[in-house]
Design a protein around this nucleic acid. Structure first.
Lengths: 107, 107
DNA sequence: TTGACAGGTAACTAAATAGTTACATATTTA
DNA sequence: TAAATATGTAACTATTTAGTTACCTGTCAA
């Protein structure tokens, strides 16, 4: 599981949106994740495959359905990489404040 | 400053290496950052321009040199996006343990 | 004030990427 | 079992991206 796969997986807006959806409700099927995307089912499947290869999403077959689950571990590792131990509390505070003021995230 | 620019900037291994170098020693010039890269100066410049556009790097001209500084704020925001408030401490602990066992990061 | 040094711009190319359409496989249910 | 549903595979295409080479601009110091 290379870091490179994680970063490249996160580089696409559609894939980030998929993660957002799983963050909102975990364990969705391919079909469910397709709704609202202006893109073929096959394209969404490719994106999910890339996320799965990067270990950002784990899956479980259930009958003819495939459930998708977000995995936050690799995402956390990104932040740890370039942020010094002592800057963290300051940055987190700043980010929390921003969230409190603005509400939710957009892309 | 869009999120998209940040994620796409981080998608390239050479750019991540540049951030690693700035994290190790901040304020380096283009020339310094070129050493050790198997790539033309112009290519490195393009990468730095992409990082700068994404607000991951800030610069300051000093005479005929240009100094480059890493900016951790957008990186932190990534982690905040998909990690629930209550998973954070657990993930951080896990990451700190991993660091303690392994030493430093690689790509 | 000329030459050397540090950085900037532009046009081009090969490879990677995101998307498409067409067809295939498995699982449920009437 | 046959039709419907859910997911999987493969070949192809347009666009983006990372890199190149060639040439241009600004700053310093002998």
């Amino acid at each position: 599981m290379s870091d490179d796969a994680v970063f490249r997986a996160l580089a696409d807006a559609s894939r980030r949106q998929l993660l957002d959806r799983l963050h909102a409700r975990n364990g969705q099927t391919l079909g469910e994740l397709c709704d609202g995307f202006d893109m073929s089912r096959q394209a969404v499947m490719k994106h999910l495959a890339i996320l799965e290869d990067a270990n950002l999403v784990a899956t479980k077959r259930q009958g003819r359905e495939k459930l998708h689950f977000i995995n936050p571990v690799p995402i956390n590792a990104i932040a740890e990489r370039w942020i010094g131990k002592f800057e963290r509390p300051r940055l987190r505070a700043l980010s929390d404040l921003k969230d409190a003021l603005e509400g939710e995230n957009d892309d």
